[in-house]
């Protein structure tokens, strides 16, 4: 099946085409490949902002208020809200739209809910595809929202240029989550609901943690490079109230500061390089897994190996090596 017609419409900024292409990319990895293949050269214009935080930290309200500001600046905004799929039933309940202000028109704000369909890490397999589609559709900014609850939900930093982590006063668990992994991926900590008691306490908790361990997101991005100059970004902390919009100037300033940092230090190039590596790795994993699964269920040679392992005349490691040989990628 060709998608030329839809892609043509996408390039002209057609909303329905964008929506349908995301659906297709979600449902069929083969089709996703075809779509990305033809639109990739048009990507790279959108600024990608990741927002994560525990349930109830006010992510949707924050995004809603931020989006309002961006729209007033004349920008076109794409929002992708990723929620978990139930491992038992495969279903998902996606309720993030409720809190998004409804006075957004379709012309300048595109909101899409996405279930992660069992992928670990906080994103769905097709999230990166959807980002690219919205980029080509004409969004100046793409905001990705994920539920960040623990150390395993940190994948948001892969596609996002700036990562915001939301915290609320009072909830003690989030500090634990930060220690366990969120710390390293965060560019800006946002303490929401600043009017609640305990907001200052939360700020000082984060400050203390930051002193103990500097962000190594950018170290990591330079890991495999010889003579890399390591530019450090010290994560910033903002207190605000996303319902009233109080202190949003402050947040915008810091986002811009971070954008400028990425550009001026050249970190953005490292960042792109790593993003491509990571993405390729993800795609390879997906493809190889599918290929191996297909092989295991259909290849008589492998049935033979399995019998040998059952007889204890071979061990699973040796069998795996033989399968890699079969795949021809040794």
């Amino acid at each position: 099946m060709g998608f030329e017609a839809l892609i043509d419409r996408l390039l002209k900024g057609d909303t329905r085409a964008a929506a349908r292409l995301i659906t297709i990319a979600e449902n069929d990895i083969g089709a996703a490949e075809e779509i990305i293949n033809s639109i990739y050269k048009h990507t790279g214009k959108a600024y990608i902002l990741g927002i994560t935080g525990a349930p109830g930290s006010g992510k949707s309200t924050l995004i809603s208020t931020l989006t309002n500001i961006f729209v007033k600046e004349g920008k076109k905004v794409g929002i992708i809200c990723v929620d978990p799929t139930s491992p038992l039933t495969g279903g998902a309940l996606l309720g993030d739209r409720i809190r998004m202000k409804k006075h957004f028109t379709t012309d300048n704000v595109f909101i899409r809910s996405m279930a992660n369909r069992g992928q670990l890490g906080g994103l769905a397999r097709a999230t990166e595809d959807a980002i690219k589609i919205l980029d080509v559709y004409g969004c100046d900014i793409v905001i990705i929202e994920t539920v960040g609850v623990g150390q395993s939900e940190v994948d948001i930093f892969r596609p996002a240029q700036s990562v915001l982590v939301l915290l609320v006063p009072g909830m003690g668990d989030d500090i634990q989550a930060i220690k366990a992994g969120i710390m390293e991926i965060t560019d800006i900590f946002v303490v929401n609901k600043m009017d609640l008691p305990g907001a200052d306490r939360k700020v000082s908790d984060i400050t203390q943690m930051l002193e103990l361990s500097m962000s190594f997101k950018y170290d990591y991005e330079n890991l495999n490079q010889d003579h890399a100059i390591v530019h450090k970004w010290t994560p910033k902390i903002v207190k605000l109230n996303s319902k009233t919009g109080e202190n949003f100037d402050n947040l915008l300033e810091i986002i811009n500061e971070h954008k400028a940092f990425l550009k001026e230090t050249g970190v953005i190039e490292n960042y792109r390089l790593n993003r491509i590596k990571n993405e390729t790795l993800q795609i390879l994993k997906h493809k190889l897994t599918r290929k191996v699964e297909g092989l295991i269920h259909s290849n008589p040679q492998i049935d033979e190996y399995i019998r040998l392992v059952m007889d204890k005349s071979m061990d699973p490691y040796s069998m795996a090596n033989l399968i890699i040989k079969l795949l021809g990628i040794e």
Binding site: A92, L94, I98, I111, S113
Partner: peptide
């Protein structure tokens, strides 16, 4: 996969959501 929009949707709200989702 179920998207719940909440209460008080105008016909335009519903149609916009259908287009995007």
């Amino acid at each position: 996969e179920v998207i719940y929009t909440g209460i008080h949707q105008t016909p335009d709200d519903v149609v916009n959501t259908v287009i995007q989702e």
